[in-house]
């Protein structure tokens, strides 16, 4: 996927969000760190173009909610969660780059529930690569990419990596 394809996908998702929620009055965007955050900000821009309203954007760090902390030798760095608006009764759109096993989303749901009680939580991802290990699905998908577990999907975004692209690579043994 190149820059144009990513932007087109996000634009379509923005339209779908408006359609599904009948506007954006009750919608808030929350990006899952790290790459979900710039994606959420881009969606915010597209929503503003369509509806003329600025939707609040927050970021969520799920490190403390991971289910694999006891299985890893290293401890992942804890990032900052910044949600400076109430999510009580809101329609929260969780935004992430890749949906894979579903475990990140599970952690994000737990983290979200500790902060407040949204009316609905919807999930938006740029890439759905399959191989779910939990009963979780996305409401908005940029692109479905069937992969094998051996492959690695890398989403690179200008805000973090300096370039917009999605590439499939071979799994690197570490």
């Amino acid at each position: 996927m190149d820059k144009e394809a990513i932007q087109r996908a996000l634009k379509r998702i923005a339209h779908e969000i408006v359609e599904r929620n009948k506007g954006v009055d009750n919608v808030v965007l929350i990006g899952i760190r790290r790459r979900g955050v710039p994606l959420a900000k881009r969606l915010q821009k597209f929503l503003a173009e369509i509806e003329g309203k600025e939707v609040p954007v927050g970021s969520l760090d799920i490190t403390l909610y991971r289910d694999d902390l006891n299985l890893r030798l290293d401890q992942p760095k804890v990032g900052k969660t910044e949600i400076n608006f109430p999510i009580e009764g809101k329609d929260v759109i969780l935004v992430d780059d890749v949906l894979y096993t579903g475990r990140t989303v599970r952690s994000a749901l737990d983290a979200l529930m500790d902060i407040g009680r949204p009316r609905t939580v919807q999930l938006s991802v740029l890439i759905d690569r399959g191989h779910r290990e939990l009963p979780i699905r996305a409401d908005y998908v940029g692109k479905n990419v069937p992969t094998s577990r051996k492959e690695q999907i890398e989403v690179r975004l200008e805000e973090i990596d300096g370039v917009d692209e999605v590439v499939i690579g071979e799994w690197k043994e570490e």
């Binding site: 403390l64 902390l69 006891n70 299985l71 890893r72 030798l73 401890q75 992942p76």
Partner: peptide, 10 residues
């Protein structure tokens, strides 16, 4: 506590 216990207990 997170830094000291957050990794694998090994």
């Amino acid at each position: 506590l997170y830094l000291m216990l957050g990794g694998k207990s090994d």
